Amino acid sequence: MLTLVAILSGAPAAVAAAPAPLIWAFGDSLTAGYGLAPDQGFTARLQAALRDAGVPATVRNGGVAGDTAAQGRARLRWGLRGLGGAPDLVLVELGANDMLRGLPTAQTKANLDMILAELHARRIPVLLIGMRAAPNLGRDYVRAFDAMYPALAKTHGVPLYPFFLDGVAGHPRLIQADGLHPDAGGVDVIVRRLLPTLVRLTKRH
């Protein structure tokens, strides 16, 4: 609507700029940027890549190293309050520590289910980011764990990015000395592969 001053002066009305999307990366050490300098971590590199792609998003780091799905669920509401407003998109990346500890997949699935249900109740869009089980955990465990993320995405009607470490797992030159976490080059691979999905989702919302 034109303001009275603009009408009387003949000046064009200013068009309010759309607010920059707020993305919350809610996860474990993979989103936290474990072992990396702040500007090399996942959230910093993702924010830079989105802005280079024309999406002026702010990506907030909600990763806590060592968190299981249960620990993530326990801090979800507190974390949302700390953002100062509802995010436009939450990246849910949890379950890797459950798998490394061999926790029952039913337990992990139940906690992720409650996280997704809480975000749905708040009308907050979600991208669920999956993990894959290590083969040494046995065929039955691997089958149940790997099936968990597609099932949850279907149940809650949310998009799924199947594997956070896609393009990095199995490539030692992209992994830190601990054999678990991506190095700076690995983070760049993850961000590059994830970027098209996030650009699409931010434009949709």
Rank of each mutant, 00 (worst) to 15 (best):
Q47E: 14
Y141H: 00
M114P: 03
R204M: 10
K109E: 15
A153M: 04
I190G: 04
W78M: 07
R200E: 11
T43K: 04
R123I: 04
A37C: 00
V64G: 03
D146I: 09
G185W: 11
L128W: 08
L116K: 12
R73K: 05
A49W: 12
R123M: 03
P87W: 04
G179A: 05
L50V: 02
P150F: 06
Q107T: 14
A74E: 13
R122W: 03
V189G: 11
A11Y: 10
L152T: 03
T43H: 10
T3V: 15
L89K: 09
R193I: 01
P135Q: 09
G66Y: 11
A17C: 02
Q176T: 12
G79H: 14
Q107K: 12
R73Y: 05
P172A: 09
G170F: 03
P87I: 04
G102C: 10
P159A: 12
A70V: 08
P19C: 03
A74W: 14
E118N: 05
A74F: 08
A70E: 15
G179D: 01
I190N: 02
L94P: 04
M148D: 02
D178F: 04
L8H: 08
R132G: 13
A151R: 05
R143S: 13
F145I: 09
I115G: 00
R132I: 13
Y149H: 13
L137H: 11
A117W: 06
A147I: 10
P162T: 07
V191S: 14
P12G: 13
P125F: 02
Y141G: 00
W78F: 07
T197D: 15
N136W: 00
P125Y: 05
G95P: 07
L83P: 08
K154S: 12
K109Q: 15
D28H: 13
M148P: 08
K203Y: 01
T68E: 00
A25N: 02
N61T: 11
D67L: 12
G35S: 09
M114V: 06
L4D: 08
R200M: 06
G185V: 14
W24Q: 10
L89P: 07
L22Y: 06
G84W: 15
D188F: 07
R173Y: 13
R77G: 05
R75L: 05
A151V: 07
D146P: 05
A6H: 02
R192C: 01
Q107H: 06
Q176H: 05
L30A: 14
